[in-house]
Design a protein around this nucleic acid. Sequence first.
RNA 1: UGGGGUGUAGCCAAGCGGUAAGGCAGCGGCCUUUGGAGCCGCCAUUCGGAGGUUCGAAUCCUCCCGCCCCAGCCA
Length: 563
Amino acid sequence: MTPPPNFIREIIEGDLKEGKNEGRVHTRFPPEPNGYLHIGHAKSICLNFGLAAEYGGLYNLRFDDTNPSKEDVEYVDSIMEDVRWLGFDWEDRLFYASDYFEKLYEYAVQLIKKSKAYVCDLSADEIREYRGTLTQPGQNSPYRERSVEENLDMFERMRQGEFPDGSRTLRAKVDMASPNLNMRDPVMYRILRASHHRTGDKWCVYATYDWAHGQSDSIEGITHSICTLEFEDHRPLYDWFIDQLGIFHSQQIEFARLNLSYTIMSKRKLLGLVQEGHVGGWDDPRMPTISGLRRRGYTPESIRDFCERIGVAKRESTVDIALLEHCLREDLNKRAPRVMVVLRPLRLVIDNYPEDQVEELDAVNNPEDSSMGTRKVPFSRVLYIEKDDFREDPPKKWFRLAPGREVRLKHAYYVTCTDVVKDEKTGEVVELHCAYDPESRGGWTKDDRKVRGTLHWVSAAHSFPVEARLYDHLFTKEDPDDVKEGMDFKSNLNPRSLETLASCQAEPSLKDAEPGSRFQFMRQGYFCVDTVDSTPDALVFNRTATLRDTWAKIEKALQESEK
RNA sequence: UGGGGUGUAGCCAAGCGGUAAGGCAGCGGCCUUUGGAGCCGCCAUUCGGAGGUUCGAAUCCUCCCGCCCCAGCCA
């Protein structure tokens, strides 16, 4: 399969044709360790690493750790775990911008010597005032024309910790009248006494993104530095620094970040959900984080497939989350073994089935893949079926169970409903009585009689209780940020994003299911054993995705036509 | 009102002067021991709008309109 064309591939192929960079393709994924990776990062990882792999190049993992006040090792660990899980191996090419702090400092000295950088004593507020506005040019800082000697001395003293936090900065001397605000003497270093997760207290001056990023790319010999659209305005500065220094020139290319319907992708907002307890953590199965998706039961293959299918372009867009779910189902359909689990049990007694008899019936593990074999499922007189599979007063087109109706029990027999037992007080149906056809063993008869409905079931005496967690979109709105005045995205949180069913009944083969293992609960959806809360004695399953539910559509259409 | 981007179907997205790929969603049908899966078919006479160039324009030119990003010592 040849990957779909996109503008970045076009650029790379053009470069290759021209023999640029000696034919090398070298990319990097540069996360800041200030949060967990999400599906949007997966797009970037697949793009960066996928492209390098495709053109026989290399890719680096580089932590952009230039702001110690927001960063933490917890995040670097999770990021490495997530990237590996997605299926990418950076081999020995793990780097940190902090690896280059000394080099960056030397580069800064070079710029000072070229009179292209200066120490500025303006406060943050003053810098803002001097910067001008979108329509008005800025004014030069009064410190702009300090001598090289004084700048060298002051910069050295900044590093030595002689000045308080925020009191001075090192700025690039570019152009205060530039229509591009990024060129109005951007800050390269700020004084910040914060302990860095790797360099500890060695430094009290830290490079800004603009100063660190391009030079890090250059040091690593990155040929194509792929980033998101909001950095487009920074490209002239990216190029300016590299040109002033006369070092290897990486090419920055920008693409549109991923947005997903019913989802937020902002790390800041995601952090808020975690901190305020709206979700259980970064790895809550409702989160769009890689760790959340993993715990939910997503496969790395399905995520990579998704990232390929959404394409790469420069126009801002929001991908329908149904596409992600589709990729997941397509993958799991082929690999997930089928099992029978009754989510909301309803007792069903087969009156004409011998009291003590138990049959071990053959069940196919995956109709899509016969190599996955078969298993035995016990059948007996008392079963559980799904509450939703019985209607006392069935609507049109209903071909599940109802009084007098015959259905097939998957892998087993045909049964006909003969009696309904209700709770005297509530009127709730509590038990069904059926008669089975002994000639229908395996689920078919010689007379080829049509039985349209097929239900899943478990034997009451052989099944065991499990918990199922049914997840739905975290937000009720396609665009969670679409809110009324004064409200924020949290007002769109879906109160029903998690439904816990504590007394489901599972077939015995599930007893030894390992944490993380995935199944299709027949006619219900894909589920996986939770890796955090599940124990061998009390299994917890997360619903990864529902199956397509044609009946739900039919019923909805039926109800609407009656109105 | 400065600068940088960007407009192709409900949602993504190909297209690069020769007459609108593909996927998702949706809708019909077939098939089915999962109302699952699979299979078949339908779904843009038109590309943000208006002019122009050309035998021929989504592709080139002009003007207009919409949307996104930028005034952190965040990334």
